[in-house]
Design a protein around this nucleic acid. Sequence first.
DNA 1: CCGAATTGGTTGTAGCTACAACCTACGGCC
DNA 2: GGCCGTAGGTTGTAGCTACAACCAATTCGG
Lengths: 167, 167
Amino acid sequence: MVSVNTRWLSPDEMAAWVRLAAVLELLPAALDSQLRRDAGLTHFDYYVLAMLSETPAHTLRMTALAERTTATLARLSHVVARLEGRGLIERFPCPEDRRATNARLTEAGWAKVQETAPGHVATVRETVIDALTPEQIAQLTEIGEAILHRLDPEGTRAAIYQRYDPA
Amino acid sequence: MVSVNTRWLSPDEMAAWVRLAAVLELLPAALDSQLRRDAGLTHFDYYVLAMLSETPAHTLRMTALAERTTATLARLSHVVARLEGRGLIERFPCPEDRRATNARLTEAGWAKVQETAPGHVATVRETVIDALTPEQIAQLTEIGEAILHRLDPEGTRAAIYQRYDPA
DNA sequence: CCGAATTGGTTGTAGCTACAACCTACGGCC
DNA sequence: GGCCGTAGGTTGTAGCTACAACCAATTCGG
């Protein structure tokens, strides 16, 4: 099964990949640890709350929420169940489609987002945004776009980011 | 505790961050799933074996291995214990320092790396490297460097990548 | 309409990671 | 040369994710 003529990485490619791999390992840990320390939330928990907070009624169907957070429905179901247990989210059956479930931010959940957001944004600035020049920000957008196009050609899972178009 | 004047992200910054966050979520999953399917290894398992395979004697002290894989010693200890149970790695006390433990690739472990590497490299090419132009590869190296400098100013945890210098 | 396939979601469980507690060996220092 | 602090690792456990099995509601073909 082993290909006899693998195209190995050139030194330039290796340099880029090794750094990306290290970022992949360290950055999620850094984000998680700030949010856990300051708000008792994982990064994914926060993302779920944040996505709900950006809608007019602070409400989304589970499937829509799963798309916006690039998660599987199973994972989302577990996470929302925990957040519901903590009183930050409430679930109720969708009137239009009786298969579906809506998730809505509670008052406490909305308050949690508002008090957590500044610290999170500050961390993102410190570790990523403020480390880069404006040109690099633009380059990173293009690079991210290119990689996501390979990871998810249909754009079904990560459809959200298209709303944030720099143009 | 909430800062009254948070510097929120501009549209350009938001565009870059949202894409990076999506990559952070999807890329590790893609790498893990290929390696799990084709070799029964997690991406971290593979990294551990790969780092050992790059040394002359296929041997490293646990602490050194932890640095090269940017992991905590506790995590590495669990992982190596599992890989040892599968016969891919063996541990033995370090002669020079009786506190220390050496980890060495077994024959089977070395074979595993050789048969797994091509498929892994192919995945890295498909999802990242071949999606980018040579200019973008260079830009990604710089961007990764800048972010890592914030995540780990001392360079203690991710010292390895300095060996792969494009210059 | 009626049955099959599909959509929307939940739950059980195995496996990995983080965190903290713990143990042994080495080094300095007086 | 004994004591304290630190370095090097291991282990126990709680919590999160992935995977697969499962169930109910809807849609579609004939």
